[in-house]
Amino acid sequence: MEKELLIGDKKCTCYGSDGLPSSRIAQDPPSHSFPFEAASAPPYELMESISAEEKEGTEDSENTSLAESSHLLPKDEHKELPPHLRDWNILFVSEQDVKEAFLQYAASKCCYRRAVAKQMEIRNLTPLNTYRYRLETFTETRETYLASELYNGGFVDSSAVATPPAPWDIVVDPPPLFTDCEMRLPIPHSYSLENCPNCKGRGAIMCQSCEGTGKKKCSACGGTGTNTLEDSNICSWCAGTGKNRCFSCRSNGWLKCYRCNGSGALLFHTELAITWKNNILEHVVDKNSGLPNYLLHEATGKEIVCDENLSVFPIVDFPELSIEDYSLACIEQHKMQFASGNIHHILMQKQTIELVPLTKAEYEWKGKLRSFYVFGKENKVYTKDYPAKFCCSIM
């Protein structure tokens, strides 16, 4: 059975379900999914131990006093704090990391002098880390529509042979999880031979140029049949008839139907369109740090929570309350959006929470205190105002 498959921006044609990438979906749920009624954040002690490992590379930096001045508290003190205060407000970068990131940023700008990044003095590093919540709902959508093709004779697989299967009764191999993909295939036993709706079974359509007469008004005499410029007063182009033959239909008055190629019949069938789509909702907690929020959406964070199951539950007991609220809202939105089991099926859901490192660096340059931001695992840099620029032009 011929099928058209679209994965990403590429199209291919395959036959049967063997030509599609295979993946287990409902049969083997991931071992790390949550069996409870709600998804919980990991214990803070575990989060603290992970963060300590990530900080190991920064402890040997030139200026350890900056790392020691971060807002880390002893483990016993964390237990006494309320949940909304037990967050990851720690430094993920050293002074050397900040300087290198700022130097690379300056080097990437053609009009920025690197002297600032080389000679500045870091005065303070303030951690402003935030969280990004993402819900991914992998759905399968099945819709049908009527399609036609030329009939060249032969067997017709109609409903008289067998009852056509329902759209969701057709078994196909899905693509890998959370991968957008499209497929189209004809439904078996849905074929029927019918008259072409374009020509009503005649195999030809009326010529619009001559309106089926095969003749057109003579352009030389305007249809009068006479010409005052000639001696005989009779138009030589139409021999006095006022009409010439129609070249579009060769005086036939009819043209071969382009849809059925003149046969007068078409082979109709029901086409099944299957669409796999990864639907994503994302939220980044805005803590009014001064960094534009859209930059945080583009940065890479450190994944601290991952919950994957056929159906996920809202996050609970997380230090940032807005993450819990947004988790509940996102899950309810996708549940309502894909509630129609006749068209949509939810195959798998995954929700993740990432800690997005964000540090505000304050530095002194020529006696003036300025600042910039270092964010993401890539140590991207953002600054509103670079103090040393020069104009450059390309000749």
Rank of each mutant, 00 (worst) to 15 (best):
G154H: 08
F313H: 02
R24I: 07
E230S: 12
F36D: 10
R370H: 05
I280W: 03
K243S: 15
G253S: 09
A273P: 00
P357V: 12
K302E: 07
Y386M: 10
C330P: 09
G212H: 06
M206Y: 00
T300S: 14
A52L: 13
Y131L: 14
A361P: 00
P82V: 09
C199M: 02
F92R: 04
E182V: 08
E230K: 02
K256S: 13
Y363I: 02
E100L: 11
V305D: 08
S327V: 12
E320R: 13
P35T: 14
D180H: 01
Y105C: 11
L185Q: 01
F102A: 04
T130W: 03
P165I: 09
I234W: 01
S248P: 00
T13I: 06
M336K: 15
C249Y: 03
S31M: 12
G242H: 01
I170T: 05
D231W: 04
S311A: 06
W365R: 07
G262H: 05
Q351N: 03
M336S: 15
K256G: 13
F338L: 07
C12A: 14
Y326L: 10
S311L: 10
H344E: 09
E332A: 08
C249K: 02
F318P: 02
P188I: 05
A26V: 13
C196D: 03
N261H: 06
Y326D: 13
A106R: 12
S22W: 04
I234V: 00
H78S: 10
C235A: 03
T275Q: 09
L255Q: 09
Y145R: 07
K384P: 13
S232W: 02
G223I: 10
G19E: 11
G214L: 10
L185G: 03
E143F: 12
L125Y: 01
F247R: 12
Y363L: 04
Q208I: 04
G154S: 09
W237Q: 04
D385L: 12
E136F: 14
E230Y: 11
S148C: 07
P82T: 07
S322G: 07
C238E: 10
H71D: 12
Q104L: 06
Q337E: 02
F138L: 05
E100W: 08
L185E: 01
Y112N: 01
A67F: 06
T300L: 15
Q27Y: 12
A67I: 13
K99G: 10
C330S: 14
A388M: 10
L369T: 02
V161G: 01
A160S: 08
P197D: 02
R142D: 00
N227D: 07
S311H: 11
W365Y: 04
L103G: 08
I187Y: 00
E194K: 08
N198Y: 07
W276K: 10
F102S: 05
C392R: 11
T228Q: 13
T64C: 07
S94A: 10
H334C: 03
V156I: 10
C14L: 14
